[in-house]
Structure formats: C-alpha cells, structure tokens
Write a protein that binds this DNA or RNA. Structure first.
Length: 474
RNA sequence: GGUCCCGUCGUCUAGCGGUUUAGGAUAUCUGGUUCUCAUCCAGAAGAUCGCGGGUUCGAAUCCCGCCGGGAUCACCA
C-alpha cells in the first residue's frame, strides 16, 4: 500500500485561527494514524496579501500545538522547496504542457473588459461564465497576460471521505486563471501541481473549496494527474454561530490562547472534539490517543460553534492532570510581580495548593499573589459577609487574638494546625463559617483561597502570626 | 440569482429502522465534601430530533417537498 502523505498549506497572510488549525490537526492525525507523513507547504503566491513574518508566525503556532511536520520550508525534505514562490519553474513546466496540448490559452481581455462581461451577466440574472467569451484566436502566451485553463465542462460525481458522495453540473466549471500576469500561479493551479509533485495522497481542506471541486477535477484530467483522496472539513462557526470563522472579524489568533495560558493538550483536545469523536463517551484525549483513534469517517458533516466556556473547562482538566514539575515549567511566564521573585521551591508549593483551582494559567497571579506578599487588609470583605457581621469589630479582633495565642503553641504541620483549629472551635464556641471565615480573611484578604491548614502551613508560623497581628491592629 | 453543503438539549455531540420514556459532556441551578473559591460526588432542569407529507407493524434514523442557516461564484487562498 502507498504511504499516506497529507499536508497543511497555509498562505502567509496573517495568523492562524482555530479553523485553520483544525484542518492542520486532522491532516496530521490522518498521516500519523497510518504511520504516514505530514508536510507543511507555504502557499505564498499572492504578493499583495502577503504579510511579512506571517510565515514563521504560523509555523510557530503549528509547532506550539505539538503538530510535527516531516517536511517543510524551514526543515526541507525530498520535495523541496516547500515555498511556492520558489517553485515558479515547476508551475511553468506544467503550464507549458497545458499550452502544448491546447488546454490553456492567454487571456486577451483587460481586467476591465472581463469585469464588464460579469456585470452584464449579473444584470441579465444569469451566472457569469468566462468560457462564454472564450476568444477564437487567443494571442501567444508571453507571460504578460494571464494564462487560462481551457475547461471541458461536464458533470462530475466524486467521493469525499467526510461529506460522502458529492456531485455538480457542468455549469460549475469555467476557464479559470492558472498563471497570473505577474507570473505567479493561482492557488487553483499551484496546489494541484504541488500535491502531485509532492505525492500527497489525501487532500484535506475547508468547506469553502467544495464549490471549486468540479474545476479541479477537470484540471486533474487535463494534466493527466490521478486524483487524490478528498476530505472536506465543515466550518467552525463564530460564537454567534451565524458564519464561518474568519480572521477578518471575530476569529482569534491561536497564539493568543497560549498567551492566556491555555495548554497545547487542551487546545488540541478541544479542536479535535469539534466535529470528531470516537463514538464512546470519552471527552479527554491526548494527542497519542487521537493519533491512535482518529479516522475521517467519524468526522461530522455539520459546522460547529466555537464555545470558549468548554475550552476553559477542558483546560482546567488538563492542568489538573499535570504533575507538579510539568506545571511549574509551563507556569514560568505567568507569575505575578511577587511570585516571580519567589524561589523555585516556594513556587512549587504554591502551585501544589492552587492546581485544582487553576483553569487558565493567566489566572495565576490572582490565585497566588497574596501567598507571596502580605495583602492589604480590607475590612469591607468582613463587613459584607453575612456570617461575620453577627460579631462586632472588637469581638472579631478578640477571636483573632485567641487564634494567634493558640497557634503560637502549635507544631507547624498541616495536621497539627487542623487539630488546633478544631480546638479553637470548641474553645470559642464559634461555628466554622464564623471563625474560619474570619481567619481566612485575616490571612489572605482574598475572595477565595485554598483551605486554611494548607495555607497556614505554606505561609509558615511566623508569617501567619504576623498577618494575624496586622489584622488585630485594625 | 446560479451551484453545492448543512439542520438532535443554550453549546460540543452519541444515535446508521425496533434495546430510546433520545445517551454523554459543557454551561445553568440545588445538595454534600467541619470557612471561601475550585476540584470531586450526588441530583435537577433543559431537545415536540427545522417544518410538512409519505414508506413501514414501527422513523431522529428511508423517500419527497418546504423552511432556515452556511459556503462559493476574484489576476485570494
């Protein structure tokens, strides 16, 4: 059997969003699932839309997701170059073949003339087809005019691994431009040539290309290239669900998610879950599991909305599963100003007690700063707590003083602290919500925080008592 | 407008003619885990399977029509 080869072929015109990445991910999974190869090709044939640096930026996004390609513009490979702007001679060779066989001709019209044909067709309420204006004696192709494909319109039926059996009539086929007047090929031509040259077996791409399929099928025949296996990915819709995700308006750069502290495992898991599942009730999949279980016939046909809430949940699940050293490594860039200055050991201890509470690494400062640095007392927190307002300020301070006295004689382990706290409950006759709530505020002045014994054990006796003292000073 | 695709809880989805009083997850709400938040556990609510016809003993599942949504009709990919 032939080795499976898939590709992701972005154009360097900006950043990569989840829609782009899902196509890349699924292509990658198809290749890895069968032990095949995954390649990355840059389709930089539109010099007007090209954005400087976008190529490396997109490559970085792919790498950050753990999507490893075997051949690509930065690592080379047996079919180099992998940048279309460096393959102009290849397209010229195939275009010449088409000219020689009478299946391509130079476009004699000016852009304005073509536009007027189109306007006329629209006014007469019928579809515009360039081939209705096909010139009888086109000029020789000297490279200064666009080169058009001379189509052979017919009906087509084809199979799509995801969409099933598709078909379209001859009205979907037209004479499209294959080489632009600037000498660069169009996507429509270049991708077919490159996929063939690079021995791509599966063409996996977004739904926006299905309407062009009849044209491609026609071109494969003219080029005498056998068609690859096709798989069309349904669109990912924006959050309101009314149109496909596009970078023009609401799509978010995937790199943004990394900056906010989303894990690559969560991103990959989440993106794969939009449109694919293995038929069981499993929700959490590692990349290795995806590679083992992925198949195109379990990809859904309908579009999916991007729901960030679900992504956040999934990220929390992945953070929870990380071992401490791993979490520590990934959290490096997310600490707050005082957390950053703490020792590795302190940071790890903090992470250990807040790990379950972390949903996104960017929440780290809010969850940890008060553990590194003494917080500013804020009695309005106490005064707006309906349990604590049962006591007046003097009673509250008295309770904290009693607590401090008790803790002074306590061995400083989590277990012993717990025992002391329980004894304090009896000693003061207070309910947990009152006593513990008050102590928690005095220590953290935070809306929420880890449990009392673990917080105290982390802070140390000295710091705990110091904070209680500050609180009792009012 | 032409062509093509899609349509199950708010959201992601399972479902491939009977085991379905449509399952899971998330989001929401409630209770439990001696304080808060989170985790975890238990529970609640939430889908006339877009609508209307048919076929069938039986349809979310098959057929037809309609409606709604999306994509595409570039010297962009």
């Amino acid at each position: 059997m032939v080795k499976v080869r898939t590709r992701f072929a972005p154009s360097p015109t900006g950043f990569a969003h989840v829609g782009n990445i899902r196509t890349a991910l699924f292509s990658f999974l198809v290749a890895r699932h069968t032990g095949g190869e995954f390649i990355l090709r840059l389709e930089d044939t539109d010099k007007n839309r090209e954005v400087v640096g976008a190529d490396d930026y997109i490559l970085d996004a792919v790498k950050n997701l753990g999507i490893v390609y075997d051949e690509g513009p930065d690592i080379g490979g047996p079919f180099a170059p992998y940048r279309q702007s460096e393959r102009l001679d290849v397209y010229k060779k195939w275009a010449d073949k088409l000219v020689a066989t009478g299946r391509a001709y130079a476009d004699p019209y000016t852009p304005e003339q073509v536009k007027s044909f189109r306007v006329e067709a629209t006014r007469n309420k019928h579809a515009f087809l360039y081939r209705n204006h096909r010139p009888d004696n086109p000029p020789a192709w000297d490279g200064t005019r666009p080169l058009r494909f001379k189509s052979d319109p017919k009906n087509y039926a084809w199979h799509d691994e995801v969409m099933g059996d598709l078909h379209a009539g001859e009205e979907a086929i037209d004479d499209f431009i294959i080489i632009k007047s600037d000498g660069y090929p169009t996507y429509n031509f270049a991708h077919i040539v490159d996929d063939a040259e690079m021995e791509i077996t599966h063409v996996i791409r977004g739904q926006e290309f299905v309407s062009s399929m009849p044209n491609y099928l026609n071109l494969y025949e003219a080029l005498e290239i056998s068609r690859p296996i096709f798989a069309t990915m349904p669109h990912i819709l924006n959050e309101t669900g009314n149109k496909k995700l596009g970078k023009r308006d609401d799509a978010k750069d995937v790199m943004e998610y990394f900056k906010e502290g989303f894990l690559q495992e969560a991103m990959v898991n989440f993106i794969a879950s939009m449109g694919w599942n293995d038929g069981t009730e499993q929700e959490i999949f590692s990349v290795d599991e995806l590679v083992a279980k992925f198949s195109l016939d379990r990809v859904g046909r309908s579009g999916a909305r991007f729901d960030e809430k679900r992504l956040i949940w999934m990220n929390g699940q992945w953070i929870k599963r990380l071992n401490l050293d791993d979490l520590y490594e990934r959290a490096q860039d997310f600490w707050g100003t005082s957390g950053r200055e703490a020792s590795d050991d302190e940071k790890k201890k903090v992470l250990a007690i807040i790990q379950d509470r972390l949903k996104v690494l960017a929440d780290l400062p809010a969850l940890s700063e008060y553990l590194f640095e003494r917080p500013q007392p804020n009695w309005t927190m106490v005064d707006s707590n309906k349990q604590l307002v049962k006591l007046n300020r003097d009673e509250q301070i008295k309770l904290l003083e009693t607590t401090a006295a008790k803790l002074e004689m306590t061995d400083w382990t989590e277990e012993k602290i717990q025992i002391s706290l329980n004894e304090l409950l009896e000693q003061t006759g207070q309910k947990p919500p009152v006593l513990f709530g008050l102590i928690r505020f005095a220590l953290t002045w935070a809306i929420f925080s880890p449990g009392l014994p673990e917080t105290m054990a982390l802070l140390g006796r000295e710091e705990t008592l110091a904070r209680l003292k500050i609180a009792t000073a009012g």
